[in-house]
């Protein structure tokens, strides 16, 4: 399979595929971070996570259209506004959903799964009714178009670099929030021992709502970043939900570091395989590998001991 390529070609191929894998990795991390908080920390299966992501993408689309029509001078900066709006919109919807739906079902995780699947169907149809069934794309600001020519055979896209930088920033922010802020301390306390956390005066209901909201908000940001490299349709979210859940489970549900490590492993495997076989076989092999490893090691790569 290597016969037709010279050594330097092969080097370039690995670098380019590695870079494509890094972009995939960034998107996976952004999607999985929100889920790692909601599923890993709270134990809630949110099947509508993909739809929260798409909400962020549509908010970005609306913001881009608004800037194009009313503030063309500031178009270069619209993305930052869109990201904040996407976070707020998805977060607000998330908190509303937690209050209306999820909080009644904390003791029945499998039922949460069915209810949030219902929610995802409703959201999909709502997107289809308001934005149409066709996929929509946004115009990138001028500075994000183009690529850096690293060597003769290697080029790197700027929007990909931007997404990677964004992912690093958001990951650091989430890490700081979880491990340095008072909210993070409370979340971890509630995860470790809900009853005791309540007994020492933590409002566990409020922590739950906020946690769910922030997880959904991060999904919104992921959707917003997603518009930079692809178009958005009403059912785009569903394509990613299985991958995202597998990443979180594979990494060890309670560990943020595990989530990142598993997103890296899965994305690199997939993008390298994609070059040698078809795209569909690459995902089949990758996913089968993940499922196989999970059967041997159900607790995932990284585990955290907690009291149940």
């Amino acid at each position: 399979m290597f016969g037709d390529y010279s050594l330097s070609d092969l080097g370039s191929i690995f670098v380019m595929q590695g870079f494509a894998g890094l972009i995939l990795f960034s998107v996976f991390v952004l999607m999985a971070l929100g889920l790692a908080i909601i599923f890993g920390q709270m134990g809630v299966i949110n099947m509508a996570h993909g739809e929260f992501m798409i909400l962020g993408a549509y908010v970005t689309y609306l913001t881009a259209t608004f800037f194009q029509n009313h503030l063309p001078g500031l178009f270069d900066a619209y993305f930052f506004v869109a990201m904040v709006l996407a976070f707020l919109a998805a977060g607000a919807l998330g908190m509303a959903v937690e209050w209306l739906l999820i909080r009644h079902l904390y003791r029945r995780p499998l039922d949460t799964l069915l209810a949030t699947w219902g929610l995802s169907l409703i959201l999909q149809q709502a997107y289809r009714s308001s934005f149409g069934a066709r996929e929509v794309g946004v115009d990138l600001p001028g500075w994000m178009i183009g690529s850096l020519q690293a060597t003769e055979t290697i080029e790197i896209q700027i929007n990909g670099l931007f997404i990677m930088a964004l992912t690093v920033l958001i990951t650091i922010a989430v890490g700081l929030m979880m491990f340095r802020s008072r909210w993070g301390q409370q979340v971890r306390a509630v995860v470790q021992n809900r009853v005791m956390a309540g007994a020492v005066g933590i409002d566990t209901g409020r922590v739950d709502r906020l946690t769910f909201g922030i997880g959904c908000g991060i999904a919104g940001i992921a959707g917003s970043a997603f518009t930079m490299i692809g178009s958005t349709g009403p059912t785009s979210g569903q394509l990613y939900i299985v991958n995202t859940f597998l990443i979180v489970v594979f990494g060890g549900a309670q560990s943020l570091l595990g989530t990142i490590a598993s997103a890296f492993t899965i994305s690199q495997t997939q993008s390298t395989l994609e070059f040698f076989t078809s795209g569909s076989m690459a995902s089949v092999i990758t996913l089968l590998g993940v499922v196989g490893i999970l059967m041997l090691r159900p607790q995932g790569l990284f585990t955290l001991k907690i009291r149940r």
């Binding site: 499998l110 597998l246 089949v284 159900p298």
Partner: peptide, 18 residues
């Protein structure tokens, strides 16, 4: 290996997707 509940649901779902 005592995989059950939610994890089993996710993995069966993944197998169907594969």
């Amino acid at each position: 290996r005592r995989v059950s509940g939610v994890y089993f649901a996710i993995i069966t779902q993944a197998i169907a997707a594969i």
